[in-house]
């Protein structure tokens, strides 16, 4: 009887899972390559508007990020007004100048003239805040800016 059983199980071979790690590693490598670690923890809503006349920012090291938008749901106690975020903190308009100077010092003399300020601003923000940021940047001669957007048709902004 036992002989009979043995013969049957030989007909149904076990599926080899030896290639499973290979598949998983393949996926792993893909995500490892595609991953860019987020530098700052966002504390404001940051739904970027759409645009299609965009340029890619090449040199990731030479970018300053300024975020603006309404405080995200975790920080509702701060209020509903649009706020600016620099690095990991909420900031005021007057903090922008010291922030730019600080970043220039950190990036070193070589990169400092080529610094681009990436404005990551929530699409529902009023232009008043954006205008204030631009005014501060002009005053410290940080003239190269980039309105960071998502790629898409502009009409999607207005829906």
């Amino acid at each position: 009887m036992s002989k009979f059983k043995n013969k049957q199980s030989k007909d149904m071979p076990v599926i080899s899972t030896a290639s499973l790690p290979d598949i998983v590693f393949m996926l792993l490598f893909f995500f490892m390559v595609a991953t860019v670690m987020r530098k700052d923890t966002l504390m404001v809503d940051n739904k970027l508007p759409y645009a299609d006349q965009v340029e890619k920012l090449e040199n990731k090291k030479a970018i300053l990020y300024i975020y603006a938008g309404k405080p995200s749901s975790r920080y509702k106690n701060i209020g509903n007004e649009a706020r600016i975020q620099l690095n990991d903190k909420f900031a005021e308009i007057k903090d922008i100048k010291p922030f730019v100077f600080e970043e220039r010092k950190l990036k070193g003399d070589k990169l400092a003239p080529n610094l681009i300020t990436s404005l990551k601003i929530d699409k529902k923000t009023n232009m008043g805040v954006v205008g204030d940021i631009k005014k501060e940047l002009r005053e410290v001669q940080a003239l190269k800016i980039n309105y960071t957007t998502r790629i898409g048709d502009v009409n999607r902004n207005l829906q």
Binding site: A34, L48, A51, E55, K56, N146, Y147, I151
Partner: peptide
């Protein structure tokens, strides 16, 4: 941890 970064935008000079 992946965020497919969106570093595209309209470049302007102030």
């Amino acid at each position: 941890t992946t965020t497919i970064e969106t570093d595209y935008g309209i470049s302007r000079k102030l």
